[in-house]
């Protein structure tokens, strides 16, 4: 399946692009992360510590083991600092 993947803040800086289309057969977020990390070093650099990376599927926060199911957009970003 094809997924729109978006990145923010230092995750975006480490990966080098704000968004891209990823072709994957990963069933959940953790699988997608593992797959990306094997593809290129920049993903491994961004996802080295997943305890400081948050994930949203179609703009809703989810856990790392969330199934990708019919998601269209996956977002990776650091813990938020609003306010």
């Amino acid at each position: 399946m094809k997924l729109d993947v978006v990145y923010f803040a230092w995750v975006r800086e480490r990966i080098g692009v704000p968004r891209e289309v990823v072709e994957t057969e990963a069933v959940n977020v953790a699988d997608l992360v593992a797959e990306l990390c094997t593809r290129e070093e920049r993903y491994a650099a961004a996802f080295v510590d997943m305890s400081v990376v948050k994930v949203a599927l179609d703009q809703t926060l989810v856990a790392l083991d969330a199934p990708l199911a019919d998601a269209r957009e996956v977002a990776f970003f650091p813990p938020m600092t609003g306010g």
């Binding site: 923010f8 970003f77 600092t81 609003g82 306010g83």
Partner: peptide
């Protein structure tokens, strides 16, 4: 909730 649940990042 704005602090940790609103998708903003500060540099």
């Amino acid at each position: 909730f704005l602090k940790s649940r609103a998708p903003f990042w500060k540099k």
